[in-house]
Simulated scan of single mutants.
Amino acid sequence: MKAARLHAAGDLRVEDVPSPGEPAPGWVRLKVTAAGICGSDLHNFRTGQWISRAPSVVGHEFAGEVTAVGAGVSQFALGDRVVADSRFWCGECPACQAGRHNVCARLGFVGEICDGGFAEETQLPARLLVRHDPTLDPAIAAMAEPLAVALHAVRRLAAPAAAPVLIA
């Protein structure tokens, strides 16, 4: 399959790589249906700041279709349409156990510590996936992560209902 892999700062290559194969227990294999390029992807390409292993398939803003599920995965079925949480959290540390995945002791990001969505296929832990309506255009679904960031900012603002807001 084709995949965009980051080897070093400024060194991104589209390469032929093996398909991911059968997913491990708790993991899901996806056919990537759409992917977006984030500003952090560009920053990492330019600076290499978040390269923790190389080469790695980059891309954390993507939508996909479930093509296989590992043992123990019951919440997803073949053909489900999903998007991924860009944060790769462990699920085991005290913060994760308390539901505070954003401060996971081993927090990393999809496309950094595991392969991301700039490939024909990828695999992720089922815990990172969110099902979406299958009628939603994959190009729109792939924008779930930037939309979540914007919604989080609006909620943190907590402007009273009907209050004027200036967006510059």
Rank of each mutant, 00 (worst) to 15 (best):
A98Q: 10
I113A: 15
R100P: 04
D41G: 03
E65A: 01
R127F: 00
G72H: 03
D85F: 04
H152V: 10
A141L: 02
P125K: 02
A141D: 06
R53T: 09
E61M: 11
G26Y: 03
V149T: 11
T33F: 01
P125M: 04
R46L: 12
A8N: 10
A4F: 05
M1N: 09
A63E: 02
P18M: 13
A150Y: 13
L147H: 10
C104F: 12
D115F: 01
A142D: 03
A54M: 10
V82C: 00
L30A: 04
A144K: 11
G10D: 06
D11L: 14
A84P: 01
V154R: 10
C93Y: 10
A158H: 12
G91Q: 06
P20F: 04
V32W: 05
P94A: 10
Q97L: 14
F88R: 05
G108H: 05
L129A: 10
L12C: 14
P138Q: 08
G70W: 02
R87K: 12
A163Q: 14
G10T: 11
A162T: 15
V57A: 13
E112A: 09
A34S: 08
A9V: 12
A119Y: 00
A68M: 10
A77P: 00
A105W: 05
L30Y: 02
V69H: 01
C114K: 06
A71M: 07
P125E: 07
